[in-house]
């Protein structure tokens, strides 16, 4: 697994969280997590999960919480709940 790809994922997660950060934190985390779950292919989430096991360096606070929520259980059932 190349580190550059991980860097890309970290940047993507941060970018997503930066959009939501204007909202109250719980909503921001939820929004970021939902976005990642909806749009990231399982490999990407798995790779992020692995990065989290090493501490998730580079992720900002919201992105870190969101990734923990969205990427930890990749193989779990569909997470879509409707609505955006």
């Amino acid at each position: 697994m190349s580190s550059s790809t991980t860097d890309t994922l970290v940047r993507m997660a941060n970018d997503i969280s930066n959009f939501f950060r204007i909202q109250p934190e719980d909503q921001a985390v939820a929004g970021t997590a939902d976005h990642i779950r909806r749009y990231w292919e399982p490999r990407m989430r798995a790779k992020m999960a692995e990065h989290l096991t090493h501490g998730g360096s580079g992720l900002n606070a919201i992105a870190l919480k969101a990734c923990e929520r969205a990427c930890k259980s990749v193989s779990s059932a569909p997470i879509y709940r409707g609505g955006t």
Partner: peptide, 19 residues
């Protein structure tokens, strides 16, 4: 498959990653 697939830029990332 209920999971989203790869987007174009992520395809290149995954290719570089060998998957």
């Amino acid at each position: 498959d209920p999971e989203p697939g790869l987007r174009i830029p992520n395809m290149f990332d995954a290719a570089v990653d060998g998957t």
